[in-house]
Nucleic acid binder design. Structure first.
Lengths: 345, 345
DNA sequence: AAACTTTTCGAAAAGGTTTTCGTGATTTTT
DNA sequence: AAAAATCACGAAAACCTTTTCGAAAAGTTT
């Protein structure tokens, strides 16, 4: 039983295609008897209108594209989940691509999808794209009137809707919290030295230091590259700088750091506090459980999908918006408690 | 600058659509001068052939559908990653859906995609579908000649290609390993009481016990339901049954179990060994690091994608195959070492 | 100069669907 | 009985593209 089309049903009953189309759509224009015959036949043969033909006709595919740099990163998984959930509830399918942090794959995918396949695109920049700063492919998208929502790793140079974590505030808030618990020499360990995200967090960090009269020391910002030995970097750090807190800009680095400190018999948080970014699956289960900054990935995905679909469906052009999503500090056992009044901030 | 079609270019130059089509495709049928003019104009206006129209014409969408029950589960994320990677390298896009363990969503998605959108489908059954045992929607797929590859959570009643973990062997191998390290009273903690997967692992477990002359005790198989208190279950277990090993059928349960034992000051693995299924991101980072069964999720995804695309592209019908993927036991510190000769098995 | 070949382009079909409009045929109204 | 309205269906366009075939024009060979 091959896939069946209106044509086939029409041939079977010796009627026209239009008649069959109307019959299966239960139009009043077709007589009751004929409709029933055709509908019965259609059901028996599992007739379903061809989606591609419909897309071409209606000029909408009810599909949106999603490009994430790395699905194995829990944050992106969460965002993806959020996107899928709300897109689906609003009647859209999603066609998804993993750029794998590669500029070329991102480019190819954008080009592929911008040919009528999807009605809009949700994207977070690949690492390589961020490093290169080449966003022409996205600007073309805008020129071609294809709605685009960027999230998390966004570019100033692309004029579109954006959903970003308030990383500046997160850096500020986290640092302030550590200062309040009595820490003064706070290290930032970053594996995302290229990203806007990383820079914002450091800026927030600086602001908090300044506000509290702590001098900024460049040497406390350490950048971990792909094949660097974290163990070595941390050892060097511990040697002379008398640090009392470490902020890790991703979860794995946070956990690795914790394990390195433990292996050196450094007590956490008594001697050194640790805060990590991205509240993933690890932090809760290590001991001591890590205090983390949650970025609300699923919520970000939901927002991005809603904004995109709104733009797809609304007539006329609304101004582009940038949605700042605040982070939450999830206190666990790798940081000291704030004494006295528990003022919220 | 709206999206531009061949028609628009044709109108601009006062030539026919066919001519423009040939020109942009660099056909020898068109004179050099005209081709250059048209190509220049096309490039300037970012012309790209409409993918939907092409799909309709060529009767192929170069798209496959992927339905996973739960993307937040690391195993499925890995499979998904594997699928995306190989599908992409073979020129296919993937349209992905998360059934969220719901029968209805799985059904709706299958129906939606089986209307010409995708050329084939890769699917792992939702929990609810497995519990209900209702796989009619998948049988319809086969009837309609739409290639289907099921993985991990498969159904006997659906005649299609399959890629499954050798869960029987995994249960057998794991149990045998524990027995060799001297354990005798081995508990299985399962949160997937409905799945074929869970049953197979228990069967393998039984076989290993039998082979080694250890009596099977039904009370050592504990099923954890959604709102059950694992802490309580484990406490009850510890009370009278003198257990010396626990096999947890998912990673979270393994880590939770570890933490519960630690909170009771039970030494792992000295007093009780732990082995978990699914080698995810947690196991490596807890202490002691957990011995886990790796299912090679990415590999499974790659296999599934290759099998599907092979079937899509090959003419004629090949017989359906079921690919059994063996697991690997990744020994860490939550199990005792085997003394003497390190025989592989 | 006639016959043939090559060049250059257009018409039309095909893919599947919906929808508008038209046309007979039947039924209802005057 | 004539006029009007309703009914039941078909033809054709539209969505966009590629490709086959046909044809006119230009060029080349005898």
């Amino acid at each position: 039983m091959k896939k069946i089309a209106l044509k086939d049903i029409a041939a079977n009953f010796g009627v026209s295609i239009s008649t069959v189309s109307k019959a299966v759509n239960d139009s009043h224009e077709i007589s009751k008897e004929l409709k029933e015959k055709i509908q019965k036949y259609a059901k028996e043969h599992h007739y379903r209108p061809n989606h591609v033909a419909l897309s071409l006709l209606k000029k909408n595919t009810k599909t949106i594209g999603v490009i994430v740099p790395n699905i194995l990163n829990y944050f992106f998984t969460l965002v993806f989940y959020g996107i899928e959930k709300t897109a689906n509830s609003r009647g859209y399918s999603i066609i998804s691509c993993i750029s794998d942090e590669s500029y070329l794959k991102e480019l190819k995918t954008v080009e592929l999808l911008s040919t009528g396949t999807v009605e809009g695109l949700i994207l977070s920049l690949s690492e390589e794209t961020q490093a290169k700063g080449n966003v022409e492919h996205l600007q073309n998208l805008i020129e071609n009137q294809i709605p685009l929502v960027m999230f998390d790793r966004v570019s100033e140079e692309v004029d579109c809707d954006k959903v970003v974590v308030d990383d500046f505030e997160a850096g500020y808030k986290t640092t302030k919290h550590l200062l309040k618990t009595g820490c003064k020499r706070i290290v930032i360990v970053s594996a995302i030295y290229n990203s806007s995200v990383g820079k914002l967090r450091v800026d927030g960090y600086k602001k908090a230091l300044k506000e509290n009269g702590v001098e900024y020391d460049e040497r406390l910002i350490v950048e971990v590259r792909k094949n660097d030995d974290l163990q070595l970097l941390i050892s060097l750090l511990l040697d002379n700088k008398e640090i009392d807190a470490i902020i890790a800009l991703d979860e794995i680095t946070a956990v690795d750091t914790l394990n390195i400190l433990k292996s050196k018999d450094i007590e956490v948080p008594k001697e050194i506090s640790i805060v990590g970014f991205t509240n993933g699956r690890l932090s809760k289960y290590v001991s001591p459980a890590l205090t983390m900054v949650s970025q609300h990935g699923q919520y970000i995905g939901e927002q991005a999908a809603n904004i995109l679909i709104d733009r797809i469906e609304k007539e006329g052009d609304m101004p582009y918006t940038t949605k700042l999503v605040k982070t939450s500090l999830i206190e666990r056992d790798s940081t000291k408690k704030i004494l006295g009044n528990s003022s919220s901030y």
